[in-house]
């Protein structure tokens, strides 16, 4: 028995060695083809590298137009070359993972400002978790963050907490052992597709443009379904606006996840050490008390809160939306403009 267990253990060790050797050939963003395509593009740029980056989910990818941002900045007397690194389906913990790793690379060498979407500290649902795209960010640090979140979540029953902890433990093991990792990249020669960069190659790709130009019928159907849903229920945006106004009226500023704030503070600290100004953006969206309270706790020069229907009316108009959660190109122009204006104000206060 001892010999058997020893040999199995030796085999596992050899496997882990080989697994990490293979893993070292793949970049840290290997499972996010959108982000990956953009980083590869930036790495290959010979000149005119960006000094400003936007990181986040589709709320960044589909809503920030670097060309608009740059021209407004230039108009305000600040030289700027920005790039949208947003990617669909990216949640906060993944964004933080991407930034943590980007800090260690040359990607941020010329960058002075990083805008990052401020989102809830939510974790992906169990049924989505067990694939490379959703779970790859769960390195040791990411796993600890996820576990902290699960353990600190408002009590939903101990059984649920144990279930979540087990699921995340399994997902961590899957990543640790590389289960389900790297095969897609090997199968698809064009895994990091250039089309993800958008027509202006600045990383922005509007949803309506994507819907019109996609050759994938499934992508078209999915986008069109979302587009039509809003056309059939124009009241959806009004409802989000009203909810946000209500929550803002009764906000409890002490009710937020302090661990999330710790992570944000740590990122601000890490980026400032390499001379980068990290700014969190709270985009127009359906918000909750925790998220608004969290935004209010981030140091003022590191946060832009645009989830304010009374101040940013254009961001809560039906006409500005592609679907119920994303702005169309028109809305994106407003959003980009408001980000730029808020950023200039931040800079003037500094």
């Amino acid at each position: 028995m001892r010999q058997f267990i020893l040999k199995i253990s030796l085999f596992i060790l050899l496997y882990l060695g080989l697994r990490s050797l293979i893993g070292s050939f793949f970049p840290y963003y290997h499972a996010n083809p959108w982000y990956g395509a953009k980083v590869v593009y930036l790495e290959n740029l010979q000149a005119d590298k960006p000094n400003t980056l936007f990181i986040g989910s589709s709320r960044i990818y589909r809503q920030i137009i670097p060309a608009v941002f740059d021209s407004l900045m230039t108009h305000d007397g600040r030289q700027c070359k920005s790039f949208n690194l947003g990617a669909p389906g990216v949640h906060s913990l993944e964004s933080y993972y991407l930034l943590r790793h980007a800090i260690r690379t040359d990607l941020l060498e010329r960058v002075g400002t990083v805008f990052m979407e401020l989102g809830e500290w939510s974790v992906p649902a169990d049924e989505q978790l067990h694939n490379e795209r959703i779970g790859y960010w769960m390195d040791h640090q990411g796993f600890i963050m996820a576990m902290k979140f699960i353990l600190s979540r408002a009590p939903k029953g101990r059984l649920k907490m144990i279930g979540d902890a087990y699921t995340y433990g399994v997902a961590y093991l899957e990543r640790f052992f590389g289960l389900g990792y790297y095969s897609e990249q090997l199968k698809q020669a064009d895994y990091f597709k250039v089309e993800y960069l958008g027509p202006g190659l600045d990383g922005y790709y509007s949803l309506e443009n994507n819907m019109i130009h996609t050759e994938d019928p499934e992508v078209y159907e999915g986008l069109n379904r979302r587009f039509q849903k809003l056309r059939n229920n124009p009241q959806l945006i009004k409802r989000i606006k009203e909810q946000t106004v209500d929550i803002r009226k009764n906000i409890d500023k002490d009710k937020y996840n302090s661990q999330h704030l710790d992570v944000i503070s740590d990122l601000i600290e890490q980026t400032s050490q390499i001379g980068i100004h990290l700014v969190f953006i709270l985009p127009p969206r359906s918000v909750n008390n925790d998220l608004l309270a969290l935004a209010s706790k981030i140091p003022e020069n590191h946060v832009i809160d645009l989830a304010r229907p009374s101040e940013y009316k254009e961001l809560y108009m039906y006409e500005s939306y592609f679907d119920e959660t994303h702005l169309n190109e028109n809305g994106a122009r407003f959003f980009t403009r408001f980000v730029e204006e808020a950023f200039v104000k931040l800079k003037m206060h500094e």
Binding site: F11, L14, Y15, L18, R19, H130, L179, G180, Y181
Partner: peptide, 18 residues
């Protein structure tokens, strides 16, 4: 033998969960 087992295990891991 061990090389074969290791290669097989690596492939199993890569294609796992598809």
């Amino acid at each position: 033998r061990w090389s074969i087992y290791l290669i097989a295990t690596i492939l199993i891991a890569m294609f796992f969960g598809k």
